[in-house]
């Protein structure tokens, strides 16, 4: 069903409750037009994961560029149906946004069809390295995260912290960003301590919180005492870890998840898309509308490790993690799975 329908009812109810419309906002008169960005995201901007990482970056860029007068952005969230997302992408493009971001590799096929119809609009999508420039499409940027790098660092920490020598992974589907992150993690664990057993469950869904919880419980029952996972459904797994009261630990990715369970979260790999957004915006202003794939890494600052400084056993893991980060940045450690 369409996005429109889904929002119509609550919006209509709200409108009734408010009783009156607030009146159209007058745009301030200004000399320079703001840079306008529209983004379509598969989950919620508060998912503590993939979509939130992009939302936070846009908010950051807006502050950097001097507020809404200089940088305007709109978003459509929870577009888990690709058809709905495609309609939104086309709609934003026809409204004349400077940059339309399709935040999800699943939107690539739609973007491939839509972008050539709007040759004066720049598009970006990720996480992927496909710009379609080889197919003659010149106005699509691609971006991705070297999530294996933070995965590797998390693997090093997990290996240092596990007492049972068993660690567990809760993944959604074995593809894309999740696959890259998980394989980086496995490499980090193995290269730190090859005797550690790595358990792995894919739930088949980015949204099924209940299954993520059961996967975490199954790992814990099998003896795992450090868990990681990726996808917005991992909040279920984090709740299961939290219930163990400190016996089991969690290391996060994509956004800082620490406030969900401050006693058991060690650290998080945080995606900072500002690095690629700055690049893309600068290039668009120079007239380049696409054709380039960009990457966030530990080295360019797009990936960042945020430690939970209040976690009691952080000292056992942080020095090794920092050494791994340095090694990846200066090239002495190869985190590519």
């Amino acid at each position: 069903m369409s996005r429109f329908m889904k929002w119509l009812m609550p919006v209509a109810l709200l409108a009734l409750l408010l009783g009156a419309c607030t009146g159209g906002q007058q745009k301030p008169a200004e000399s320079s037009k703001p840079f306008r960005v529209a983004v379509v995201m598969p989950s919620s901007i508060s998912d503590l994961a993939f979509s939130q990482s992009m939302y936070d970056a846009l908010v950051g860029i807006q502050q950097e560029m001097g507020g809404p007068e200089k940088f305007e952005f709109v978003y459509s969230e929870n577009m888990f149906k690709v058809d709905d997302a495609a309609a939104a992408i086309r709609d934003y493009a026809s409204q004349g946004y400077d940059l339309v971001i399709a935040h999800g590799s699943q939107y690539g096929t739609s973007l491939r069809e839509i972008a050539p119809n709007f040759p004066n609009t720049a598009f970006a999508h990720g996480t992927t390295n496909r710009t379609f420039v080889d197919e003659g499409v010149k106005n699509v940027y691609a971006y991705e995260a070297a999530s294996n790098e933070g995965g590797y660092v998390n693997g090093v920490m997990a290996a240092k912290l596990t007492k049972s020598k068993i660690v567990g992974i809760v993944g959604p589907i074995d593809v894309g960003d999740a696959k890259l992150y998980i394989e980086g993690f496995e490499k980090g664990v193995r290269e730190t301590d090859p005797s550690i057993q790595i358990l792995k469950v894919f739930t088949g869904s980015f949204g099924d919180v209940a299954l993520a919880r059961e996967a975490a419980d199954a790992h814990i029952a099998a003896g795992a005492d450090v868990l990681i996972g990726t996808g917005q459904m991992v909040v279920g797994a984090i709740a299961a870890v939290d219930e163990q009261g400190g016996k089991v630990l969690w290391i996060g990715t994509q956004a800082n998840q620490t406030k969900l369970a401050p006693k058991v979260i060690v650290a998080n790999q945080v995606y900072d898309w500002k690095v690629v957004l700055r690049d893309i915006i600068a290039k668009i202003k120079k007239g380049q509308l696409g054709g380039e794939a960009l990457l966030i890494t530990l080295k360019n600052g797009g990936l960042r490790m945020e430690f939970n400084e209040n976690f009691s056993r952080l000292g056992e893991a942080k020095p090794a993690a920092e050494a791994a980060i340095q090694g990846i940045i200066n090239g002495t450690i190869n985190a590519v799975p």
């Binding site: 069903m1 919620s44 508060s46």
Partner: peptide, 27 residues
């Protein structure tokens, strides 16, 4: 029925956003 599914989903999202704003774990 599908209509009520959409209402329930949309309304729960809206309430979540306005009343909570972020995912929390309770004990």
């Amino acid at each position: 029925g599908i209509g009520f599914y959409i209402v329930g989903m949309g309304l729960s999202e809206l309430l979540f956003k306005t009343l909570l704003g972020e995912v929390k774990v309770i004990n």
